[in-house]
Structures are given as structure tokens and as C-alpha cells.
Design a protein around this nucleic acid. Structure first.
Lengths: 200, 200, 200, 200
DNA sequence: CATGAATGAGAATTCATTCAT
DNA sequence: GATGAATGAATTCTCATTCAT
């Protein structure tokens, strides 16, 4: 009943996938700390405990590896956001919590995704556009339902919001002990809703 | 009164300085578009219409050139801010206007200064810290005087504010025709003061 | 009479040999099209529908595979020539027919055997020397018997003859529809015997 | 009247061109002896007494260098052929002399140009086609004027002739001491005109 | 001072070969 | 025997920096 080749193949496949994942993780970590340009492929390989050639077995070249990291990061981010029911998307706090959780669970992915330098690549742009579009959509919906003010340029406001998110989260990645997750969420949420104006 | 050598020297000095300035401008432009790591020194030289060697006549190395660009950018930004009386520093609109004017007049410098990748380098850090500290100081003052709410983590809030500034302005640099300067100022100002909450 | 293991062994042996032959064929084809240096072992394996490792089960290394291909090619060529009675070896037309038949039946082998690049390697040299020596021998015999002119440098003439053979046949391999086998044979034969001079 | 910059520029230009030529020569020599694939760029650089980087200063990559060598070779060959008056193009001996002279004066270029492996590249193909077309044209003209027989497939015959030329000349490059230039010319000429048939 | 060809250390990439499964 | 992921030496190619003119 057992074909002697199948288990082997499965084991191989599993180990291959494990190697690929290790490479993605190592790359994410090193890219997020030093930037992709300053990270040498050999360092990624070493960190993942494989030979240099193995990097090229799994990814066409260094750039393809970066793109794949960004792709994974975006997927994980979407996953995290999807945990909240879509009808609650207007609740700013939920969105901020999702973003903070993503950053908390996948700090390296966040570090790469929120890195300004990577936003120039196509998957980086896609990620950035996803965030901006998502913010703009939320803004427009809120305006339509009377929750938000309608006098702002939506594209500009969306960009401003993404800017603060990205800035705060990428800083938090590197300084996780300075503030708590809750503080991050609270600050982003209330700044967004009320700005700096005094509580009424 | 005229010494035949003096004009030559002056002319030389002037042309020398002109070359240096052209190099700074070319570097700023290229750095702002492609990032410093991806910009080759030979491209800067070409853009400034000089030989590669000339770059090294004016700057110790590529890194020194980047530092100088950031230094100039920061100086120009401070200059712009200094145009407003210090006692009015609390007026958010003035600050935003200064930032927008800086971006308008020196788009390439803004592009470099507000680039996430460059903010990580040591001279970039100084610029970033200046911005953050300036925001945080403004925030704390405002809180002390009762204008601003006092329940936010000041470092976090400052970073969020810098994030939206940087994001909006660096986007505006690349899309100057989409929104007017006044829209940029208004959006940043009212988002900061009132957030997305509906007008009362 | 039949041992249950024997058929298995025979089957194995047969499949083993089949694999080896597939590898030789794939190698011949790829070598003949792209040259051995530009052909990757993995491509040979893929073409033969086996894993890379299998190549090394049948051949010590890539070079041994090339040598084997050339050896097989030379053997097949000799086989084809042997179909004609030795006493008729002087009949140029017979030789040409043998060469054309070899090329027709084993185009890939001909492609490898007649490839200038491969003729430089040690096993290629053997093949090339066989061809040249065979031509030279024929020439000298013909001279001795008064059929051929005796004023040519035999080595040089032999080389020239091999050159035209190789050139024409390797071109024919790639353009089989342009000329018929008979045209190839006729052209080679009469060019050899009479040159371009007008018929008397 | 003398601009102090001009002499410098000229000297520079001359030295640059000299370096480029040295690189072309070294490449031709090494390619012709070992083939382009087995020749390392660093060896070319060493042979030309420059650093590796210099190779890439003058040629986009290794392949561009090979193509340039082939281009130069073809140009020189045409030059040699052009030394004879066009109306004498029917004189086979003149053509053979031109080819032999080219081979004699530029053995490395001949070695590369007549290498089967290089005929796959576009400039190699161009060179080969030039030779074949030139042979075919001569053949057709000769037939028209009644000098040559008209019963051969011209394309096939042209290829056969190119084959013997290339073979003989590339062999002569590597064995210059075995036969004299005159023997080469005589053999090629009379084989072409009369074949192996006995003198009448 | 300015030039730009040359340098060469350093990084990316390839691919024949191995070996654990 | 067969497999194909992994290896790493070997090679190509890049680019900041120098220095003779």
C-alpha cells in the first residue's frame, strides 16, 4: 500500500519548502535591519544555514527574493486584517489593531514592508497602494455615513494616514520595548479620529 | 584697483562653487529618485556635467556627498521655518506652510530628506530627529498651554505626525499637479488638529 | 526454467540500458545544437526524463558523456562504411553514400561528430583523424593506381575534403528539406573528382 | 594656438584605443586557442596587461567582446579580398591567395572566425554567410561565362567550398610550419578547379 | 583644478557534482 | 538504482575610488 517513493518525495518536498521558508525568513530579517542593497546573498544563505547556490535554487535572483518577501508580507497583513468582520471595517480601532498585530507577529516582514526604500519595487508599490486604497475607502465610507468630515482631499488624507501608520509601526519594530502595543493602537486611533485638538 | 589675478581667482572660486552646487543638486535629484545606494557616482558627475574625479575634489567620498546633501536640506528647511516668528510656532498652520514651502522650493532636497532609506543613515538621523523633536516640542508646549490634549504618548504622536508629513510631502514632490499647495497645508493642518472626526 | 528474479533483472537491465541510450541521444541532440560547453547536464537529464544524478550513474562526468557520444558516432559511421565491400573503397561515390546515410540515420550524432568545437577534444580528434586518414589513404591509393593526380599535398587535400564533407553534411542535418540525399552525394562526388572545371 | 587640453585628450584617446586594441588582440588569441567559453575574462585582461574591470570598460560583456573580435576579423578579411581588382574575382587563385594572406597576417582572427563554435553567434553567422555568398556568386558567374560546369547545386557546392577553405585554413593556423602558403593556395585552387581527377 | 581611463576588491550568479533519502 | 535538493568553487560583472596627464 505504501509506495516507497512517496514518503521520500513528501519528505523532500517538506524539506525543500522548509529551506525556502528559512530563506524567506532570513532575508526578511536581514533586509529589514540593513536594507536589501546592503544585505549580501551569502549572508542570507549563512543565516538560513545553506550554501549560496541554494538561494538561487529557490529564487531567480536577489531581487526576486525581495519581491517574494514583500509578497508574503502583504499576504500576512491581509490575513491579519481579514480576522475582523468586514462590516466593522469602519471601526478605526480594529484596523489599527490588525496592523499592530501584524507588526507584532511578523516584525521582520513589517520592517521590510514599511521600509521606504522598498516601496519603489513593484510588489512594494502594490503593498503601499493596498494600504492607501484601503484607507481611502474607509475614509469615503465614513464620510458617506456622516461619521467623518467630508472637507478633506481623500487621496491626500489617505496618504497622510498611511504615512503615520508606516512611520509609527516601522519605528515600533525597532523599539518594541519603549511603548506597548496598546499605546500604539490608542495613539494611532485617537490621532486619526480627533487629531491633537483638546478633548471636548 | 583691479589686479589681473584677482578676477581670475574670483572667477575660479565662483566656478568652483558653482560646480560644487551643481554636484549637490544633481546628487539630490538622483538620490531622491533612486535612493543613494542605487545612484552611481558617475551618474551624478554626468548629470552635473563634470568628470567623476571632480566629485572627489569636492567631497571626500560618496557618503560625504550624501551627508552634505542632507545637511543642506536640513539647513534650508530650518531657514524656511525661521521665516515665521518663534512665538507663532504653536500655530500648526505656520509650520505646515513652512514645510510645504520648503518642499515647493527644494523638491529634490525634500525628496532626499524625507526618504525613509536616508533617514536611517547617521546624517539622515539628525534631520529626522530634528523633525521629530520639533514636533514633539510643539506638542508638549501645546499640551502645557492647554491647547492640545495631554493623553497621548508624545514620542509616538510626534513620529506619527512626522510620518504623515513626510509621506504627504514626498508624494507631493512627485505629483505636484494633482493637488495645490494650499490643499496640502489645509489637509495636514486640519488632520493634525481635528483628525477625521466630524466638524462640530 | 524461468526464475522469477531473472525477468526482473532482465527488465531492469533493459530499462537501465534504455536510460543510458536515452541519455546518449539527448546529449547528442543538445550537443549538436548548442555545443557541449553550452549544454548543461541538467538539460540533458530533463530531455532524457531522468534526474540529474542519473547522468552520473551512467557516466563518470560530463566529459565522459561527450566522449561516449563521439565514440558511438564514430562506431555508427564505421558501420555504415563497412556495408560496402572494402575493394570498392576507391569508389568515391560509395564513400559519399555511406557518409550521407550515416548523416541521414543519425543526424544528431553527425551534428556532434562534425562539429568543429568537438573535433578539438581528445575523443573528437580520434574521429577527425579517422576521417582524415581515411580520406588520405583513399587519395594515396588512387594516386598509386593512377586514378588520381599525384601533385597535391596529401594531408592538405585530405583536410580540404573532410572540410567540405563536414560542412555540407552538418548543413544538411539542419536543412534536410532543401536538397535530396542524392543531390548531396552527387555534388560531393563530382566536386571531389572533377572540381568546378567544365565537363570535357 | 595650442589648447593645453587637446594634446592630453588626444593622448588619452590614443591610449584608450590602444587598450581596446590590446584587449581585442588578446581576446582573439585566447579565443582562437581555447575557445571563448574556456577563456576567462581575467585571462584576457592579464594578457592585455590591464585589470579585469577594464575589459568591461571597453565591452559590455564577454559576449560583446567575442562579437567585436568576429566583426574585426570579417572586416580584415574583406579588406584583404578588396586588394584584388573586382574584375579578377573569377580567378580562383586570387581568392585563395587573399584568404591565405588574411590567415597569414591575422592568424588569431582567422582562428576565431573559422571556428565552428563561433558560427552560431550572429556576427559569426554573418561572416560565414559572407563567405558562402561570395563563393556562390563566383560559381554562378563562372557558370554563366562558361568557365564552370553548370550541373551542380550552387548552394551545396558553395558550402562545400567554404567547408574546405575553413578547414584547411584553421588547420594551417595551428600548423603553420607543416606546409607553405603557396602549397595551401595551390591545393585549394586546383582542388577547386579540377578535383582529384588526373591531369589531362 | 579638472579629467576620465584604469583599478581591483567585492558582490552576484552559474553549474558540474555529490549524497541523503 | 533513482532522485533532486544542496553544495561551493569558479566565473562574471559592478562601481567607488585613484592618479597620471
Amino acid at each position: 500500500m505504501d509506495n516507497p517513493t512517496l514518503p521520500t518525495n513528501n519528505a523532500r518536498q517538506r524539506s525543500q519548502e522548509a529551506t525556502r521558508n528559512r530563506l524567506l525568513e532570513s532575508a526578511a530579517q536581514l533586509f529589514s535591519v540593513n536594507g536589501s542593497k546592503k544585505t549580501r546573498t551569502i549572508d542570507i544563505a549563512r543565516d538560513a544555514q545553506v550554501a549560496v547556490g541554494t538561494v538561487y535554487l529557490h529564487f531567480k535572483d536577489k531581487d526576486a527574493l525581495l519581491k517574494e518577501v514583500l509578497k508574503v508580507a502583504l499576504a500576512r497583513l491581509k490575513q491579519e486584517i481579514a480576522k475582523y468582520p468586514p462590516e466593522s471595517s469602519l471601526l478605526v480601532e480594529n484596523k489599527m489593531t490588525a496592523l499592530a498585530s501584524f507588526t507584532e507577529h511578523f516584525p521582520h516582514l513589517a520592517g521590510v514592508l514599511f521600509d521606504g526604500g522598498n516601496l519603489a519595487t513593484s510588489p512594494g508599490k502594490e503593498a503601499f497602494d493596498f494600504l492607501t486604497a484601503s484607507q481611502e475607502r474607509g475614509l469615503l465610507e465614513g464620510v458617506a455615513q456622516g461619521y467623518y468630515r467630508g472637507d478633506l482631499h481623500s487621496g491626500l488624507a489617505a496618504r497622510a494616514m498611511v504615512g503615520s501608520l508606516v512611520q509609527v509601526l516601522s519605528w515600533w519594530v525597532k523599539n518594541p520595548e519603549v511603548v506597548t502595543k496598546q499605546e500604539v493602537i490608542n495613539t494611532l486611533t485617537s490621532l486619526r479620529l480627533e487629531g491633537l485638538g483638546p478633548r471636548t
